[in-house]
Amino acid sequence: MTPLYVELNRWRRLTYRWGEADCVTLCADWCARCGWPDPAADLRLTYESMSECQRVTRFFSDPLAVVAPRMAAAGLALTAQPVAGDVGIVLQIAPGVTRPHAALCLGETWAVKETSGAVTAFRPQKVLAAWGVGYAHP
């Protein structure tokens, strides 16, 4: 099993917890596992619900303002052509809802940890931004 799919299986075993094991912190975990500084170090454990996440970070109204500076500070560069192992901010559509998520690129699809606890792979409506992590499948 590749390190990327080992990481996805780790996500599956975790209980979704805002500020600890949510879509942003898990993508930051992956960046750290790939050798980068933790982009979410200052966000961890600062919110415990969706409403607190919005109040503390404004992620749902302006996700790039939250994520982009932290990714840059960790040394991660934007990429226009994300590949498997890269991370990004994507828009996911559920019935009647469009919402940003931090997600892990699997190639043509992206994986996200849902609030239900499930790890879902989907084709996003839009990739708002993506950062190259430098993951190379052995």
Rank of each mutant, 00 (worst) to 15 (best):
W11V: 05
W11H: 10
W11L: 15
R12L: 10
R12Q: 14
R12K: 15
R13P: 03
R13S: 15
R13C: 11
L14R: 14
L14Q: 13
L14V: 01
L14T: 02
Y16A: 08
Y16P: 10
R17P: 08
R17I: 15
W18R: 06
W18F: 15
W18G: 05
W18Q: 08
G19E: 06
E20T: 15
A21P: 03
A21T: 14
A21N: 14
A21E: 09
D22P: 07
D22Y: 05
D22A: 09
D22T: 04
C23R: 05
V24P: 02
V24M: 14
V24I: 14
V24F: 12
V24C: 13
T25P: 02
L26M: 13
L26S: 01
L26T: 13
C27Q: 13
C27A: 15
C27N: 12
C27W: 06
A28Y: 06
A28W: 04
A28P: 07
A28R: 06
D29H: 13
D29A: 11
D29S: 13
D29I: 06
W30Q: 04
W30E: 06
C31N: 03
C31M: 11
A32E: 13
A32L: 08
R33D: 13
R33W: 10
C34N: 12
C34F: 00
C34I: 00
G35M: 09
G35E: 06
W36R: 09
W36Q: 10
P37Q: 07
P37K: 04
P37D: 08
P37Y: 07
P37N: 00
D38S: 02
P39Y: 05
P39I: 03
P39C: 07
P39V: 04
A40F: 06
A40D: 12
A40W: 02
D42G: 11
D42I: 06
D42T: 12
L43I: 06
L43K: 07
L45Y: 13
L45T: 09
T46S: 12
T46H: 06
Y47F: 15
Y47V: 02
Y47K: 04
Y47D: 01
Y47P: 07
E48G: 14
E48W: 13
E48T: 13
E48L: 11
S49N: 09
S49H: 04
M50L: 12
M50H: 12
S51V: 10
S51T: 12
Q54Y: 00
Q54T: 05
Q54V: 02
Q54L: 09
Q54W: 00
R55Q: 12
R55D: 09
V56W: 00
T57I: 04
R58G: 11
F59L: 11
F59N: 03
F60A: 01
S61A: 11
S61K: 05
D62R: 12
D62V: 00
D62I: 02
P63A: 08
P63I: 02
P63R: 10
L64T: 00
L64P: 01
A65K: 10
A65W: 07
A65M: 04
V66S: 02
V66E: 07
A68E: 14
P69K: 01
P69E: 01
R70L: 03
R70I: 01
M71D: 05
M71F: 15
M71C: 15
M71S: 08
M71A: 14
M71I: 07
A72Q: 12
A72I: 02
A72Y: 08
A72D: 10
A72C: 05
A73G: 07
A73V: 07
A73C: 04
A73F: 01
